[in-house]
């Protein structure tokens, strides 16, 4: 084990951890248990409920772009596979099934084209 790599991992790990932990702990300190009971199962106002869908939309875009950049054929494969995955997601509303269906569809398209 190289010492410089170990130090690099520890620094990057500590930085990532702090960026996850500090905002969570501060937010939990601001949110009292009474407020958590009140908001249980209700739709919160403000921008916070939109953060999740927005981040997932951005993650989808940034996970697809590196794969399809510079290749029209790959873009077409991804477009077809994403469309079929979307149909499965809407029809069955099951995360696991959708992921497996997506992998199979894309694998099949890659094999055939």
């Amino acid at each position: 084990m190289r010492l410089d790599l170990l130090l690099l991992f520890l620094l990057a790990g500590a930085g990532n951890y702090l960026m996850r932990a500090v905002p969570l702990l501060l937010a939990l300190r601001r949110t009292t248990p009474d407020e958590q009971e009140t908001t249980a199962g209700t739709t919160l106002g403000g921008p916070l409920p939109l953060v999740g869908p927005s981040v997932v939309a951005a993650l989808l875009v940034t996970s697809v772009l590196p794969e399809v950049s510079g290749s029209a054929a790959e873009l077409a494969r991804y477009a077809v596979a994403l469309l079929i995955t979307l149909v499965v997601a809407v029809k069955y509303d099951n995360l696991g099934l959708t992921v497996i269906a997506g992998i199979l569809v894309y694998g099949l398209i890659s094999l055939l084209t």
Binding site: L60, A81, T85, A89, L95, G102, I103
Partner: peptide
């Protein structure tokens, strides 16, 4: 394709 498929599934659920 696993992660893009997961993000599509999550977007639909959300």
């Amino acid at each position: 394709f696993a992660l893009p498929a997961l993000f599509v599934a999550l977007l639909v659920a959300m």
